[in-house]
């Protein structure tokens, strides 16, 4: 692969992860936090940034662990340990989140206070484990750089979706919605409409 086509390939993966294969709107991952946190813009942005950051780094670390240790014939351990994938990945994510939390608290307290409350919650955010599990999908043949581009794009896609939703919900607060539809119902339907809008990107870039 030449240098320019490698870069082009990365851009395609990156854009596809944000627009056509949006982790939230096409893969349904991260819905719980999406619905709970999207009530106002400030917390939505905080959550989005935290998810992007953790997704990017855990995907890169887990990629190295998966291909360095877990797959059969890997350089560090020849035995087939892929049955441990789920366990290792979720422990890695939990550990990484804990580490980031301690690091921020010690060295960047201002960021810690702004982001702090979201960090423990994102261990169980399906979007992060989802990206980690999707990147090792054998059909994709992702290399390390593509994995990083895919993880960054997915995180930013989540940030985009949750910010859009927060903006819509601030307007929605003044709307007269039928009582049974309030809260969960209307949020999910609007998410559906957003997903429909995002379907318009189909064919622009493809994974």
């Amino acid at each position: 692969m030449t240098e320019s086509s490698l870069f082009g390939g990365l851009a395609v993966v990156f854009l596809a992860a944000i627009l056509t294969n949006n982790i939230l709107l096409s893969k349904f991952l991260g819905m719980c936090s999406f619905i709970a946190i999207s009530r106002n813009m400030r917390t939505a942005v905080g959550m989005g940034i935290a998810v992007t950051f953790v997704t990017l780094f855990t995907a890169m670390i887990n990629y190295l662990i998966y291909y360095g240790v877990l797959v059969p014939g890997a350089p560090l351990c020849a035995a087939d340990l892929t049955f441990l994938t789920f366990l290792i990945f979720i422990m890695m994510i939990a550990g990484f989140v804990q580490l980031v939390e301690m690091f921020l608290e010690r060295f960047i307290p201002l960021l810690y206070f702004n982001l702090g409350i979201f960090l423990p919650l994102i261990t169980v955010n399906c979007a992060i484990l989802g990206v980690n599990l999707l990147m090792i999908d054998p059909d994709r043949h992702f290399g390390f750089a593509q994995t990083a581009a895919y993880a960054l794009g997915s995180g930013l896609g989540y940030l985009l979706a949750i910010c859009l939703m927060a903006g819509i919900r601030q307007r929605l607060a003044q709307a007269d919605i039928p009582r049974p539809l309030r809260g969960l119902g209307i949020t999910v339907i609007i998410t559906g409409l957003m997903a429909m809008a995002f379907m318009g990107f189909t064919g622009m870039v493809d994974l």
């Binding site: 039928p178 049974p180 999910v188």
Partner: peptide
């Protein structure tokens, strides 16, 4: 069959059950 259908169906199910 696509993703938006899932979201909207779920919204409608929630609506009907809560109504």
């Amino acid at each position: 069959k696509a993703a938006p259908g899932a979201f909207i169906t779920m919204g409608v199910v929630v609506w009907v059950v809560r109504a």
